[in-house]
Structures are given as structure tokens and as C-alpha cells.
Design a protein around this nucleic acid. Structure first.
Lengths: 192, 192
DNA sequence: CTCCAAATGTGATGTAGGTCACGCCCCCAC
DNA sequence: GTGGGGGCGTGACCTACATCACATTTGGAG
């Protein structure tokens, strides 16, 4: 399916736009292709865009002073990713975004999003809906991190996103769960 | 200051409404007063409203099977609180909301919020802005929970919200940090 | 096919924070 | 005043997970 179709489908689940409106909306996106391992946003960058994933898989992550990586989000097709803090507040990136697999994305600048939200009321509604979902999901993850052990969190993650199991190496899963790769590896080790 | 003034000030920082528009907006809110310790939302309730804090301090929290409490949010004046997951998705509450101190709130129903968002484009913009802030703040907290130890998180919290130190007992601070009250208490114990 | 790097498994040991138990203080309701 | 419950400190011990070290497997580039 075409990138445009995928976006149209996705947006169409939440709001109705006429074909002309959607064409206008879509005209603000730029399609970009990236190779596995390629960086889209790096720590310290100026962040101008958010990215709608058409194909492939991205990760957004934070690297701490000890070079330990924590993954904020895996972004699969129809997910949106960026360093939203830097994007909204016009600060330098503290979050990295790169490609776990080859990927195609649709790129929308902060300015164009705000322009579109102003011009087309339904678009503003769409982005409110999108952020609501992210907000609620992040709150749930925060609670799960405090309340559940690694094994439970791992199984929840795989239940929610089974496709990750095949695409994403375990060390990255561990970095998402906030645990060392060794501990994750030992979860299903036979009793000694 | 009047509840209406406080809300007007808060909303006015983000969007411009005419006086008539704001009066109309405000007419959908109900003011409510609660006593210290009183519950606003309890686990299992149907959740109809979100709450804008005019005075006092609320907490939203989750209780797990072992009756351990995890605090999602302290809500001070001009903050919004609810079980947003239940509210948006029309499910039963899994999050509780109650009063740490006597409190006055402005209550807005889910239906009225959606109606206002539809009728007044700026209102939709306001709520998008509000959720964006919550989303970004929750992501930061998630990273901090994975990356920083208790002492650091405690000091960050007090730096960000110094007023909590005087209002909120330490066992609740611990429940926010995701740590036992004993550990929090030992943070500044003299070396043995 | 071959080789190297990335991914993964696993043992030994260290440590932050949890849990349980107990005691004190303070404040407010009666 | 006094009794009781909430808030808080602290000792003893426990546990989940981190860290370091090294071995083994695997898959993709040449």
C-alpha cells in the first residue's frame, strides 16, 4: 500500500476529511527512507519534525552518562515518533531516534502541524486524540514499571506487541523494560 | 481569587476566548468542595468527569493486589486530574482520586469537554496543549524512574515542587517515587 | 563458504532497596 | 488530661536485579 493510503486510513479512523482536505493535509508531509541502523534524531540536534512510520521499525531512546540505553518507544507502522519534548519546546534533542530495520517514514514539521491544526479543526482533533493515547499508555507503563517485576513486564510487552519478538533483539527489549540483558536472558533459564 | 478567575487565567495563557465564549465555556463546569481524605474517584467507579483544582491538593493513585499504593500524580491548583484512561475509554476506574487537603475543584464532564472542543476550536487547542504537557512530563518521569536512584528522584521532585514538602507526608512522597517509606526515611539518616 | 561481529547464555558476586518488627513522637478528638 | 492513630525513624535480614567475565551461537558481508 502507498504511504499516502496508509496515512489516510490511519487518520480516517478518527476524523473525516474530504479528499481535497486530505490531499492538502498530506501535501505537508515529506517521505523519507532510512537504512537499518541509520539515525534520524541524535542527542543535541535541533528537532523540526515528527515522523509517521509507514514501514519498518524505529526506536526512540535515551543514553545516560554511563552510556546505558533506555528505550522510550518502539515505533511500528502507523505509529508516530520524535523527541516530542524538544519538538514542542524548541529545545535541543535529548532523545535519539533511529532505525531498527530499514524504514519509510512520513515527516511533518512542527510548524506545519501547528498550521494544519489551526486551518483544519478536525486535524487538531486528531492530534489531540493521538496525544491522549500516548499519555494514557505512558501512565500505564509507569505504573507497570513500579508495580510489576521484569518477567511480568516482558510478557505483557509480548502480549501487546507480538511482532516485536521477531524483529527486535533481546538487548533492546531489555533496554525497553529497564533491565539488563543478562537478567532478561535468565528469565526463562532452566532451574539450576 | 474566584474559581472562575483562576480557570480564566489558566486557560488564557494558552488560548484567547472572548468574554462571552469564556462564560459559555465556564458554564459547563460545576464547582465542588471536598474535605481532606475524601474520595473523588474510587476503583470500580464509572468515571464521568475530569477535575480542575482550584485550591487544595489531590492525589491520583493505584492500589495493587498487595494493597500497596503508587501515586501517579499530585494535583495542585491549576492542575487537572482524573482517571483519564477510564474517562476517555469509558471503562471502570482503576485509578483512585482523593484529597490530601481540603479542596475545591471545577468538574467538567467527558461529554461536555468533547462538545466544547467541537464547538470552540480554541478549546480543542487548549486540551491538546494540556495533554501534550502531561505526555512529555510522564515520559520524563518514566526515564528518570529507570535511570536515577531514589535520592536523585526525591531531590528532583522537591526541586520541581517545593510546596509538596510541607503539604504531603513522606509516605505519600515515597508512593510517588515508587519506593518504600523506610527507604525514603533512610536517605538522609546519619552514617551508621 | 568463511569469517567476524552481534546476539545470547551463564556463573560468581555485589548492592539498592524491600520487608518485617519495633519504638517514639505528636496532635487532635473526646 | 488522656488515649489512639498517623507519621516517622531504625535495626536485622532478604531478594531481585546489576555487574563483570567469559563462552557459545548465529547470521550476514565479502
Amino acid at each position: 500500500m502507498e504511504a499516502k493510503e496508509i496515512l489516510k486510513n490511519h487518520v480516517g479512523k478518527i476524523i473525516q476529511l474530504t479528499d481535497e482536505q486530505f490531499d492538502y493535509f498530506f501535501s505537508h508531509f515529506k517521505i523519507q527512507s532510512f537504512k537499518k541502523g541509520q539515525a534520524i534524531i541524535s542527542d543535541g540536534d535541533t528537532v523540526d519534525c515528527e515522523y509517521f512510520v509507514v514501514s519498518g521499525c524505529l526506536k526512540s531512546f535515551f543514553i545516560n552518562d554511563d552510556l546505558k540505553m533506555y528505550i522510550l518507544q518502539f515505533a511500528m507502522p502507523t505509529w508516530w515518533a520524535s523527541d516530542f519534548n524538544a519538538l514542542y519546546n524548541h529545545t535541543k534533542a535529548t532523545i535519539n531516534l533511529d532505525c531498527i530495520t530499514d524504514a519509510e517514514v512520513l515527516c511533518l514539521s512542527n510548524g506545519d502541524r501547528e498550521k494544519l491544526c489551526k486551518e483544519l479543526h478536525p486535524v487538531e482533533h486528531f492530534f489531540r486524540w493521538r496525544t491522549n493515547r500516548g499519555y494514557v499508555a505512558t501512565q500505564k507503563r509507569l505504573l507497570s514499571l513500579m508495580n510489576n517485576n521484569v518477567k511480568y513486564r516482558y510478557e505483557e510487552l509480548l502480549k501487546m506487541y507480538p511482532e516485536l519478538y521477531n524483529i527486535v533483539p533481546k538487548n533492546l527489549i531489555a533496554a525497553y523494560l529497564g533491565v539488563s540483558r543478562e537478567t532478561l536472558s535468565r528469565l526463562y533459564a532452566p532451574e539450576k
